[in-house]
């Protein structure tokens, strides 16, 4: 029995070392040798969660690449920003979504949830540092451990098939044309005088999530990249608007050095929304054309881009 246990222990240890070796080595190889570059004409990138993912149609907007992805915690956005900035010196501007729901403690589940981590960790494993791995282990060791199976599979696939551009192979975000239109039915089924609430909504501020916004801001500052915080259009009945006070406080204190481009009031019909927080493809087209016109009017170079956005939205809304 002792011999059996001893041998099993040695074999398990070897298996563990082999797997760790494959994970570490493949992550290093992919990080060093793979291509994270984007089209040289793209000097602006959009980052964030599903709101910008479904609002910024980058085929319409000049010099812009949308890297936003639904359900993405700022931790992953930070990893993405870090690597893309490092590999693409032409990037001059980052538009980073900072909206009501992203400051809520509901975002904690986006980094603790097993299913979400099983999707995100394999995507980003090669660009993580030791500290990043430690952070994830602290959040949810089980999901971290479980995701390593997919890390091995994805990395070996990537290396064995001699793929080069990781951005083509992994889901690092991009514009998603949503074809739903559920706003009318959502409003109809709720009390019309109130905001439509979700059960999980929390008002408390999530500092962990915001910590990674700080890190993105720090990278941008060091690299001389302009960082704009943005808020994509959202329906006036969207429940998270209830933490507006907290959001404004954060913007005035924590991010007072950054411009905040607020498109919340950008006028759109109910038909242009997929639901209360996401634009559908029609709304995205209208909004992207508007955003493109802002860029042409010198949004990035403007000394007061917030004013420009407000004025242009006012003009747009008045015409409508």
């Amino acid at each position: 029995m002792k011999r059996f246990i001893k041998r099993i222990f040695v074999f398990s240890l070897l298996t563990f070392i082999m797997l760790i070796g494959i994970i570490v080595l493949s992550n290093i190889l992919i990080n060093k040798d793979s291509n994270f570059s984007i089209d040289k004409n793209n000097a602006y990138i959009v980052l964030g969660h599903s709101h910008p993912e479904e609002a910024f149609n980058d085929s319409i907007i000049q010099k812009t690449k949308n890297f936003a992805r639904g359900g993405e915690h700022y931790f992953y956005t930070y990893l993405k920003a870090k690597k893309i900035i490092e590999s693409n010196p032409q990037i001059k501007v980052i538009f980073l979504e900072l909206t009501n729901n992203q400051i809520s403690t509901d975002m904690t589940k986006w980094i603790e949830d097993t299913q979400k981590n099983l999707v995100h960790i394999p995507n980003f494993a090669p660009v993580m540092t030791f500290e990043d791995h430690s952070f994830l282990i602290k959040q949810n060791p089980w999901s971290y451990f479980k995701s390593q199976e997919m890390v091995i599979k994805n990395n070996l696939n990537f290396l064995l098939y001699r793929k080069k551009n990781i951005l083509d192979q992994r889901d690092w975000g991009g514009f998603y044309a949503n074809h739903r239109q559920k706003v009318d039915s959502i409003i109809k089924s709720s009390n019309e005088k109130q905001k439509v609430k979700t059960n999980s909504m929390k008002i408390e501020v999530d500092t962990t999530n915001l910590f990674f916004v700080d890190k993105i801001a720090s990278i941008c500052k060091n690299k001389g990249i302009k960082l704009f915080l943005i808020r994509s259009p959202q329906h006036s009945k969207y429940a998270y608007c209830e933490n507006e006070e907290q959001l404004q406080k954060i913007l005035k204190t924590r991010y007072s050095q950054l411009f905040y481009l607020d498109f919340e009031k950008f006028y759109l019909l109910n038909d242009d929304y997929a639901d209360l927080e996401h634009l559908n493809y029609k709304g995205a087209k209208k909004f992207s054309l508007f955003f493109d016109s802002l860029l042409k009017k010198g949004l990035v170079e403007s000394s007061n881009p917030e004013r420009l956005v407000k004025d242009e939205i006012l003009k747009h809304n008045t015409v409508k």
């Binding site: 074999f11 070897l14 298996t15 082999m18 494959i22 199976e149 997919m150 091995i152 599979k153 070996l156």
Partner: peptide
């Protein structure tokens, strides 16, 4: 022999999931 078993375990991971 153990390399063969380790290879099978790697197959399980690579082709599993």
């Amino acid at each position: 022999r153990w390399s063969f078993y380790l290879f099978l375990i790697l197959m399980l991971i690579y082709f599993g999931a």
